[in-house]
């Protein structure tokens, strides 16, 4: 026990003297949590749109002004040739094309129906989906405006329609920060747990101190505990900073469930992570190797976590 306590004291001394590690532990979580949620969101703005207007009528002008006024779209190109607009997509100047056919206004009034053509650049999948659906909803709104303007009450009343109204539970205003901030916090805890634990043990190998330790009668489990406990404590500490300091004070995120249960899960999660760190460190000879292997696992964890993909 005395040896373990001494090992822990030594470990903390080393961590607090490490000029590279210390800011990583205490400053990065706060900065990441303050800056990242501002940038990492799923809202798509400034979608560049090319409009091919073959009609040049009042209604087509109205539709175009409605699209540009929606705030999501930026008119990148306006013309009357689809191939020219397509070139803009190829040059990555625009993300989607809206083609308004000839006789748009005429057919809309005479035949009560008209089709427009939307071509979406689907290289960036999420931008394509969102852009397409935004545009779809703008056009639907335009459609509703047109109907209202013509004001043919009996036709509207005669059409049976189902209107769906939804409510967002737990996050009524769809504030993406409520999702991103805890997500980033877990990512940080994961990185600190796995990376630092692996790097710390490999460092002993690299400097050769592990040789010196090996010729002492110290027991294996005490040495391993002496390495894991400090990072377990640091993990819990970083999580608490994120939860109480940044999460609560800056973003107003307050856990509604049991805090105790949250910490119970955190401690089990950290034990698993430190185990991964320990495993990586046994197979790596240098910090560089450990870093690369840890990065490989981190990528999998991040992509599979559900933060960026579902």
């Amino acid at each position: 026990m005395r040896t373990l306590l001494f090992l822990l004291r030594k470990e903390f001394k080393q961590i607090f003297r490490n000029k590279g590690l210390l800011p990583m532990i205490f400053v990065t979580p706060i900065i990441q949590l303050l800056v990242m949620p501002l940038a990492a969101d799923f809202e798509v703005k400034n979608i560049n749109i090319s409009i091919v207007d073959n009609d040049h009528s009042t209604y087509s002008q109205k539709l175009i002004s409605k699209i540009t006024a929606s705030g999501y779209f930026k008119l990148a190109d306006y013309g009357n040739s689809f191939p020219n607009a397509f070139k803009q997509i190829e040059k990555d100047k625009s993300d989607l094309i809206l083609e308004i056919p000839q006789g748009f206004e005429k057919n809309l009034i005479r035949e009560n129906r008209q089709k427009v053509f939307i071509a979406v650049n689907a290289i960036n999948g999420s931008k394509a989906t969102l852009g397409g659906s935004y545009l779809g909803s703008v056009i639907a709104e335009f459609n509703a405006d047109v109907r209202l303007q013509w004001n043919i009450p009996d036709r509207i009343n005669n059409t049976p329609t189902i209107q769906a109204t939804s409510i967002n539970w737990y996050n009524p205003l769809l504030n993406y920060r409520f999702f991103m901030v805890p997500g980033i916090l877990v990512t940080l805890v994961t990185m600190i747990g796995a990376y630092m634990c692996a790097l710390n043990i490999v460092k002993e190998k690299e400097i050769g101190t592990i040789e010196q330790i090996n010729v002492t009668p110290i027991k294996k489990h005490i040495f391993i505990l002496g390495k894991l406990i400090p990072f377990w404590i640091i993990g819990v500490f970083v999580f608490s900073i994120g939860l109480f300091l940044v999460g609560r004070l800056v973003y107003g995120i307050v856990p509604q469930g049991s805090i105790l249960l949250l910490y119970l899960f955190l401690s089990i999660f950290l034990i698993a992570l430190l185990g991964i760190g320990l495993l990586i460190s046994t197979y790596s000879e240098t910090q560089q190797q450990a870093m690369s292997v840890a990065f490989f696992f981190m990528m999998i964890f991040m992509l599979m976590s559900g933060l960026f993909t579902s």
Binding site: R2, T3, K10, K13, T209, Q212, I213, T216, P217
Partner: peptide
Amino acid sequence: FSLYQDLTVEENLNFFATIFN
């Protein structure tokens, strides 16, 4: 040389004394 470079002379000596009980 394989002692802890980030510990002082005194701390290194105390550390090795302690792990040898």
